[in-house]
């Protein structure tokens, strides 16, 4: 996959490092998760219906097409969740978690 977003301004912010599917991803404080994902791997999640990757759509919390998970199984909307240092983000539902917290 490839970066799809392009940063145009506000580049002088503090760096934040999170992990996405175990790989380190560098973002800037104030980025939402979707921005961090679209500047690194270019997608947010896989469609559960086998039609390929999805990368969000509305960026305003309405379409629910940017769901990601934390390592602990919490479901997040990538468009409306800010990045934080050390976040452990998964683009697939983590297996073996019960009860499902979200």
């Amino acid at each position: 996959m490839q970066a799809r977003f392009r940063r145009l301004a506000e580049k002088e912010r503090r760096a934040v490092v999170l992990t996405v599917d175990g790989e380190a991803v560098r973002a800037l404080e104030g980025d939402v998760l979707l921005t961090a994902l679209m500047l690194s791997r270019g997608f947010a999640r896989m469609s559960e219906f086998g039609d390929g990757p999805r990368a969000g759509f509305c960026m305003m919390g309405a379409c629910q097409d940017c769901w990601v998970w934390t390592g602990a199984g919490e479901r997040l909307r990538a468009c409306s969740t800010s990045v934080a240092e050390g976040m452990d983000i998964r683009t697939h539902v983590p297996e073996g978690i019960w009860p499902i917290p979200a």
């Binding site: 996959m1 799809r4 977003f5 392009r6 940063r7 145009l8 301004a9 506000e10 580049k11 104030g30 980025d31 939402v32 921005t35 679209m38 500047l39 270019g42 997608f43 469609s47 039609d51 390929g52 990757p53 999805r54 990368a55 969000g56 759509f57 509305c58 960026m59 305003m60 379409c63 097409d65 468009c79």
Partner: peptide, 22 residues
Amino acid sequence: TRPGCYSLGASQIALKAQACAI
């Protein structure tokens, strides 16, 4: 549904709230 396709609203939010182009 392909990655890179967004609503116009999203395109504007990316710019205004994240200083990014889609």
